[in-house]
């Protein structure tokens, strides 16, 4: 291993640098917002003290800290689920949503929004409510069940990819039909959900979201060996003694747990899941998931927190929809992948 040691130290340095950047953007996220709060006050609030103005304490504890934590975990979770899907499907453009998870979630949300309005309740209070979260979770869970049933019977992984995309499209079509028959207010509350938001998650919801995302991340970290074997394709993985069905179940389950949870709380966040694993690959130049997975986790946190800071651009009364920011940041990366892959036959 003598010639791999400079590579080893580069990897360690990159991890240190990424951790430092992550800490910086996390702090940056706390410091930025539509209300200006002095750094000294923020530090005092975080260490349990009182700020010069009591409302600043509420803003930090009830608004900014939940928002920053949401962004951190959403970024980490979506990026890891993108990495899982890209490896399992051996496709650089796979992301957290290829299995139809966001489509399932949006169907759940659409059903609840319509249901509420038919029952006469106000649909405007819905975004961020528990009803919406549970609906989204149920929707993506049902899609997962369907995918798992298929993956027990279908041997070829590409067939599963195509079926996942088809399930997703069918679900989206159902949602469109429901939208067509709904009123403007309902449509607006649904549209707001699809734009994604880091700020709508309350601290009590975080108590569910963070453990769920952590469980998904733990499951992904436990799949590192399986993912490495799957790099060569499922036939080689089988010949190395890997249980392909077990591996698929593990990976699909953790993807749904991650992407389903985050979509339920924040809405469908675009492009982070596809783009971040490629950023991690570009930085670390390594295909080993023992390196790539933590790299993706750190980069995902940085990208999402960074996008959130950009969405809170100073001078605006309210923040930009987070999906517009992630799309504008993610699309150049995706374009870069596509152009680069014209020349290279490589998958990743």
């Amino acid at each position: 291993m003598q010639n791999t040691s400079p590579r080893y130290s580069i990897t360690v340095l990159l991890f240190i640098a990424l951790s430092a950047i992550l800490a910086a953007v996390f702090a940056g996220g706390l410091f930025t917002g539509t209300v200006k709060i002095p750094v000294a006050d923020i530090l005092r609030i975080l260490s349990g003290g009182e700020a010069s103005k009591p409302e600043w304490g509420i803003i930090i504890r009830e608004l900014r800290l939940p928002r920053v934590l949401t962004a951190l975990f959403a970024g980490m979770g979506l990026s890891v689920s993108g990495l899982l899907m890209q490896t399992v499907f051996r496709n650089p453009l796979a992301g957290p949503y290829v299995l139809g998870i966001s489509a399932g979630a949006s169907l759940g949300v659409a059903v609840v929004v319509m249901g509420f309005s038919f029952a006469g309740a106000s649909a405007l209070s819905l975004p961020g409510s528990w009803a919406m979260v549970i609906a989204a979770w149920t929707g993506s869970g049902l899609v997962l069940l369907l995918i798992l049933l298929v993956s027990f019977r279908v041997r070829d992984i590409m067939t599963i990819l195509i079926l996942g995309i088809m399930f997703g499209s069918a679900t989206s079509a159902l949602v469109s039909v429901m939208q067509y028959f709904s009123t403007e207010t309902i449509l607006k509350s649904f549209m707001i959900w699809t734009m994604g938001s880091m700020g709508g998650v309350t601290s009590s919801q975080l108590k569910i979201m963070i453990p769920a995302v952590m469980a998904g991340l733990a499951l992904s970290l436990a799949s590192i060996k399986l993912l490495n074997a799957m790099l060569l394709g499922e036939n080689y993985a089988r010949s190395l003694g890997m249980n392909v069905t077990l591996a698929r179940v593990m990976v699909f389950f953790s993807t749904s747990l991650l992407a389903g949870t985050i979509t339920a709380f924040c809405g469908p966040i675009a492009f982070v899941g596809i783009a971040v694993p490629h950023l991690a690959r570009m930085l670390f130049r390594n295909a080993d998931h023992a390196v790539l997975m933590p790299a993706t986790i750190l980069t995902g946190g940085i990208v999402m927190l960074g996008s959130d800071i950009i969405a809170q651009l100073p001078g605006l009364d309210s923040s930009l929809p987070i999906n517009s920011v992630t799309a504008l940041l993610g699309i150049p990366v995706v374009i870069w992948i596509v152009i680069r892959n014209q020349k290279l036959t490589g998958i990743f």
Binding site: I224, K225, L231, L232, G233, Y236, G241, R281, G346, F348
Partner: peptide, 26 residues
Amino acid sequence: ETVHINNLRVHDLVSLGRYPYTGWMG
């Protein structure tokens, strides 16, 4: 099948052969 994976070094490819002998972390 020719294996096309960017960023996979020869040493790492050969190491994958140890899969049946390593623990759950690989």
